[in-house]
Design a protein around this nucleic acid. Structure first.
Length: 488
RNA sequence: GGUCCUGUGGCCGAGUGGCUUAGGCACUGGUCUGCAAAACCAGUUACAGCGGUUCGAAUCCGCUCGGGACCUCCA
């Protein structure tokens, strides 16, 4: 554990407030995040959740915890709607595109991983799939039945919510009362298999024409969506683990059902800290695949979309997200992205400057105190926006030292360098500009700038400006300073 | 309709009782520069409305208006 870190506090959705984080086993953290259903390209809203929890994972790791990070991939069982005729999302897509379901899964899993890599998200330690854990799911269903909380009906198995509620509070996570849920339940067709409309499927009987199905003690079928997370989190993290994350929209019913399933099967509530990331909005409305109000990461990176006036790089988007707290909604607009881009560039420029500073006998600001503020911000429920504000305090100082208006001691400089690296690169996950790679361009630019400098020395402003304007047209910005010209 | 969240300056977005004028962007003035860009310095704009609690509220309570989420698949 980092000695300089303040006590980590996490907002626990179940408790409804911040709690000191104390892991079940000292030094270790079990961390589960609900992953995507791979039936289409991940959109930016999906990405925000995963990026938020990537930041959480990075900070936990930085604090010295050994984290086992599990994020599932849902590749079966997620129905288009809740009616019994509801079609599996993967199967539907497969039918429409005349592909094997696993082709769909493969295609969109690859897309998901590609996008996450672009956002510089660290891969989970384990990324289990629902189809790869049929046996575990079947065993868990059996456990729930054995404990009297599941019942068979027409080849399907349902979770008996009313029975469960007699001894455990169903709805505690989302703040619902079972009576309200019952009175608000809409009457859907084909609910006759269930004893109660609130009951949810653990196993669904598959019709003969159904293409994704497995044998089970209750007949040929497939698992209910909520079950996979319970089965896989139990398998890899235990019956009780530290942190479970996911989007706010999964709170009910998905996470509520996970609590019920885990409790019904194992006799204990599975999760110590429930974390929920908030939604990304576009034009003030929740980004959602089903409504079409969404934008794909690639459309954002290429600028080929109807919402934004220009393209934005993955790191700018990530930085933008880090400027908002993960529990707040964040509205995506072109104007906000442009502002974030400038801020991002300023921060990254300072990161470079930081490597070239001269040291003095003493520092003009309290550098250890500033770095302590970094920890304070992040330890307060991962308050990245406050961290970013502190980072800009550092930027101001860095530029001040560069301009000779401030001084920094050698010791403090090293502290600041490591602190900035830790928080900007390791924790916020902002990759320092990947301007390597273009090996041929650098020497060419050196030559061009050298020629321009000659022109400037000769006061041949026509030539020097022509070079500058020409480069600008090519997207290269030239910056002059006392030490010479640079480009980016 | 039910449950819950939210409304901060031109924009984004922190802050939950008494110096945060948070921070970023934008804007204005200045420094620097051949000019510009970038940097730097300084400054402007705020807490939806009404009422209440309090010595004191952006921060607590009530109401009004507005926005959103969930209640059905969604990160």
């Amino acid at each position: 554990m980092k000695a300089e870190a303040a006590q980590l506090k996490i907002y626990d959705s179940l408790a409804g407030g911040k709690r000191n984080f104390i892991p079940l086993k000292e030094g270790f953290v079990g961390f589960y995040v609900c992953g995507p259903t791979v039936y289409s390209n991940v959109h930016l809203g999906n990405c925000r959740t995963f990026i938020s929890f990537d930041m959480v994972y990075r900070y936990l790791r930085h604090l010295g915890y050994k984290v086992r990070y599990v994020r599932n991939i849902t590749d079966v069982g997620h129905l288009v709607d809740d009616a019994d005729q509801g079609e599996d999302k993967i199967a539907k897509k497969a039918r429409l595109e005349q592909l094997e379901p696993m082709e769909i899964v493969q295609q969109y899993s690859i897309d998901f991983h590609t996008v996450m890599a672009q956002f510089n998200a660290i891969s989970p330690n384990i990324e289990p799939t629902a189809t790869g854990h049929m046996i575990e799911q079947i065993e868990m269903i059996q456990g729930i039945i054995d404990n009297g909380f599941g019942y068979k009906s027409n080849g399907s198995v349902y979770f008996d919510v009313e029975k469960y509620n007699e001894t455990h509070p169903y709805g505690e996570l989302s703040g619902r009362k079972i009576e309200d849920l019952i009175s608000n339940t809409r009457s859907l067709d084909g609910q006759d298999e269930k004893r109660n409309p609130l009951d949810f499927a653990l196993w669904k009987n598959a019709a003969p024409e159904h293409i994704m199905k497995w044998p089970s003690p209750w007949g040929i079928g497939f698992p209910g969506w909520h079950l996979e997370c319970s089965a896989m989190s139990t398998k890899y993290l235990g019956e009780e683990f530290d942190i479970h994350g996911g989007g706010m929209d999964l709170k009910f019913p998905h996470h509520e059902c996970e609590i019920a399933q885990g409790t019904a099967c194992n006799g204990k509530s599975p999760v110590k800290y429930w974390m929920h990331g908030n939604m990304l909005t576009l034009n003030g409305q929740k980004m959602s695949k089903s409504t079409g109000n969404s934008i794909l990461p690639d459309e954002l990176f290429t600028g080929k979309n109807q919402f934004m006036e220009k393209a934005f790089s993955p790191m700018v988007v990530r930085f933008f997200m880090m400027q908002a707290h993960y529990r707040s909604t964040l509205d995506f607009t072109s104007e906000a992205l442009v502002a974030a881009e400038k801020g991002h560039d300023k921060l990254m420029e300072a990161m470079k400057t930081l490597q070239e500073l001269n040291t003095g006998s003493e520092s003009t600001i309290d550098v250890p105190g500033l770095v302590a503020q970094f920890y304070k911000a992040m330890s307060d429920d991962f308050n990245a926006p406050v961290l970013v504000a502190q980072l800009f305090e550092a930027v101001k100082f860095i530029n001040g030292v560069r301009d000779g208006k401030q001084t920094v001691s050698k010791e403090d400089l090293e502290l600041l360098q490591s602190g900035m690296h830790n928080f900007v690169v390791e924790i916020l996950g902002l990759a320092t500009t990947a301007d390597g790679g273009d090996d041929k361009l650098a020497p060419v630019m050196d030559l061009v700038l050298d020629l321009r400098q000659q022109a400037r020395t000769n006061k041949d402003w026509d030539t020097s400006d022509k070079i500058r304007d020409g480069l600008a047209a090519a997207g290269i910005v030239v910056k002059d300073s006392k030490e010479g010209s640079s480009w980016s």
